[in-house]
């Protein structure tokens, strides 16, 4: 059984607010970068499944050389192998381009059974890459996976969270699963893991090194979308008015009057 986890390096969520609009198109955001928090759940799930069912784990990322940091975190948590897809040809790819390159790279592995991804990235926020990956690989896709119930050599049974309830879904392998945060509690890397991660080698794989990868399908030229007018949202103009009063009854009565006067209620 081979578990492939797709990971991405994204801004540390504490510093997302400091990202400047003019830096979004560039290569350096000027903030601390970290493993996309959603991907920790995917890594954790791969490790748990490996503990229970055996097999091999590999983490794969597409990005700049700096993306090694995301792979390091994966290795520190316990992932065995890594693959860094890095090439100027990938720059400016949209979700379908990223999915295409990841799919070709995954097909180049000696085998693959379960492909695990996060739900979305905290920078692009699209959540499109996982579905795109399934399409490009021609395999089933299940998102919002809240639990893996059963895994066999040939198929996987999971819980899928929908708006009005939870389905039990079974699909044959290989398959792409996008996990939800309910699925597990990601582990913290231990000292051994961190040491292993810092000693591991992370060689970049270029577009030309991936068999059957057509560079015409990646990069800015192939993108179907453009991000225009990248800007900060209008600042929330708020001066908080503290409602005072001698008692809770007085305060809340005053608040109700304000909300009614403002036509909020």
């Amino acid at each position: 059984m081979k578990y492939v986890v797709c990971v991405k390096l994204t801004p540390d969520t504490e510093e997302l607010g400091e990202v400047r609009a003019e830096d979004v198109a560039g290569t350096d955001l000027g903030v601390t970068m970290a493993l996309n928090p959603w991907d920790e759940f995917a890594i954790e799930e791969a490790l748990t499944l490996q503990e229970n069912h055996g097999g091999d784990t590999v983490a794969i990322t597409l990005g700049s050389d700096e993306s090694v940091e995301a792979l390091k975190r994966a290795v520190a948590m316990g992932i065995e192998e890594t693959m860094l897809l890095s090439d100027p040809a990938f720059e400016g790819s949209d979700a379908w381009g990223v999915a295409y390159a990841l799919a070709r790279a995954i097909e180049s592995l000696d085998s693959y059974d379960l492909i695990l991804t996060g739900r979305q990235s905290v920078d692009g926020n699209s959540g499109l890459v996982p579905a795109g990956l399934a399409v490009k690989l021609g395999v089933p896709f299940v998102s919002q996976v809240a639990k893996v119930l059963e895994l066999s050599e040939s198929n996987v049974t999971v819980l899928r969270a929908l708006e009005d309830g939870i389905q039990t879904v079974r699909v044959p392998l290989p398959a792409v699963l996008a996990v939800s945060k309910e699925i597990n509690e990601p582990r913290y890397p231990n000292f051994m893991g961190i040491r292993k991660a810092s000693r591991a080698q992370y060689l970049a794989t270029a577009a030309a090194d991936v068999p059957r990868l057509d560079v015409g399908q990646v990069g800015a030229a192939s993108a179907l979308l453009d991000w225009t007018d990248v800007r900060k949202p209008p600042a929330r103009v708020t001066t908080c008015e503290l409602i005072s009063g001698a008692t809770a009854v007085e305060q809340t009565a005053e608040l109700v009057e304000r909300l009614i006067a403002d036509k909020v209620i």
């Binding site: 993108a223 225009t228 900060k232 949202p233």
Partner: peptide
Amino acid sequence: ERPIYSGNIVTTVTFRS
């Protein structure tokens, strides 16, 4: 129009096709 960077940036997406 969509929020990116978890709502800290906004962009207007245009389409090429």
